[in-house]
Amino acid sequence: MFEISGPALWRGKSPILDAFSFALEPGEMLGVVGPNGSGKSTLLRAIAGLSAETVTASRLGRALGRREISYLPQAFAVKSSISVLECILLGRREDLGLRVPATLIGEAEALLDRMGLAGIADRPMSALSGGQQQRVLIAQRLFRAPAPRSPGSMMFR
């Protein structure tokens, strides 16, 4: 079971959300619904650890690390000519040295295969459609996650 709780969220000097907490069963999906400007993105950013406030997320009582929570910001166009494979590798930026370890390339290749992206591994990101880009960016996050996880444990927006 996932448990997530946090304090009231602020953006600058304006309050956005009251203190919150909720729990999710394995495989459960949660949609966050609300009018524009009601704080949906603020909530997701806070859970991802990108705001000043500290949100605690735990799984079966164990607090989750920052890297265990994947977050894909709202659709944005990638204008870079970096290849799909390099984009995936960037998911583990911290593990990349001046040489990229062959095992990492192997893992990235396997992931691309699983995601049905193997055929476009060498294409530049800027040449992909918006949907393909999003798919690659989801793969980037799966590549970053410390352990393989079931799709149900991800939060979709």
């Binding site: 990108l50 894909l72 204008k79 870079s80 984009c87 930026r93």
Partner: peptide
């Protein structure tokens, strides 16, 4: 190069 939002959400 992939955008600030993406880099930030990857913990940079």
């Amino acid at each position: 190069r992939l955008g600030e939002a993406n880099a930030e959400s990857l913990g940079l």
